[in-house]
Write a protein that binds this DNA or RNA. Structure first.
Length: 266
DNA sequence: AGTACCACCTGACGGC
DNA sequence: TGCCGTCAGGTGGTAC
């Protein structure tokens, strides 16, 4: 479940469980997930050091160790982290384990192996090299509007494009569009400044609340609570629709998110 | 530049 | 029960 709010929660999870802990060992269970980087290299970079900081940019999570290098993690569609006592059973689908002081461990788990774990020397350099845009939680209104005005095409496409804006995926893009009253098939060219500013505000609101609620127990009138075709829209009672767009399923309310409504929305 | 489609992976679920 | 198609919150490459 890894979009920005989920990764932010994982960052806080690392901070509350693993910060300050000494790395006693590293076990690589799956070389595909480390993209071929050997267990030996992970050990060389991490063993004997402590986890001293955690950072996030978009959907990427970074754990900084003493001495300066960083463990970078991307969670794909099914990745997560699990902190546990080494006396307990290891979590399922564990791909990499950091054995930490206090007889504890932090596992990177992933069912589908679509994410990866690697080592980087510098967070900013990594983000720049990847061409990742500004973090959705950090970006300011003017920059947001500017970026969107310089693009054409589907609004949803821009929301999900990590080079434009880092952090939103399929679920949260749908949620932001739903709360903005904008059809997922709407084009940026159709939107005015007012619409883009509303989109920005709703995006911030959705992300803030999602992080605050710790990903679960979302407000009942959110799309995310009943995001399936044929479900009932909690705002107007219409049926939620599903359409393929940008290669992904978009869920939306055809009535709350009428096509081409533009700035008529509050 | 923007879009569609495929590939990479595994698991859950519904229909037959 | 087993098999098959479809779908699932990720990115990256290709072809138009």
């Amino acid at each position: 479940m890894p979009e920005l709010p989920d990764v932010e929660v994982l960052k806080r999870y690392i901070k509350s469980t693993s910060l300050g802990r000494f790395i006693e060992g590293v076990e690589v269970r799956d070389l595909r997930v480390t993209r071929g980087v050997s267990a030996r290299r992970f050990r060389y970079a991490l063993r004997g050091r402590s986890i001293v900081k955690a950072d996030r940019h978009g959907k990427y999570l970074f754990a900084g160790v003493s001495g300066g290098s960083w463990l970078v993690m991307h969670f794909g569609m099914s990745g997560s982290l699990s902190f546990y006592s080494r006396g307990e059973e290891e979590p399922g689908y564990t791909r990499l384990v950091l054995k930490l002081s206090g007889f504890s461990a932090l596992a990177y788990t992933s069912v589908r192996r679509l994410g990866f774990v690697s080592l980087v020397a510098d967070v900013k350099m990594f983000i720049d090299a990847k061409g990742i845009g500004p973090d959705a939680l950090v970006i300011d209104k003017d920059t947001f509007v500017e970026l969107f005005r310089s693009r054409k095409g589907f609004v949803k496409s821009a929301l999900m494009d990590q080079r434009v804006l880092a952090g939103l995926g399929n679920i949260y893009s749908d949620e932001v569009l739903f709360q903005s009253g904008i059809h997922p098939g709407a084009r940026i060219e159709e939107l005015g400044r007012i619409d883009l500013e509303r989109l920005f505000r709703k995006m911030k609101h959705v992300l803030d609340v999602a992080i605050d609620r710790r990903v679960k127990r979302f407000p009942g009138n959110w799309l995310i609570q009943n995001r399936s075709a044929g479900a009932t829209c909690k705002r107007c009672g219409s049926k939620i629709a599903r359409e393929k767009l940008v290669g992904r399923s978009s869920y939306f309310c055809p009535r709350c998110q009428e096509k081409g409504l533009g700035s008529l929305r509050p």
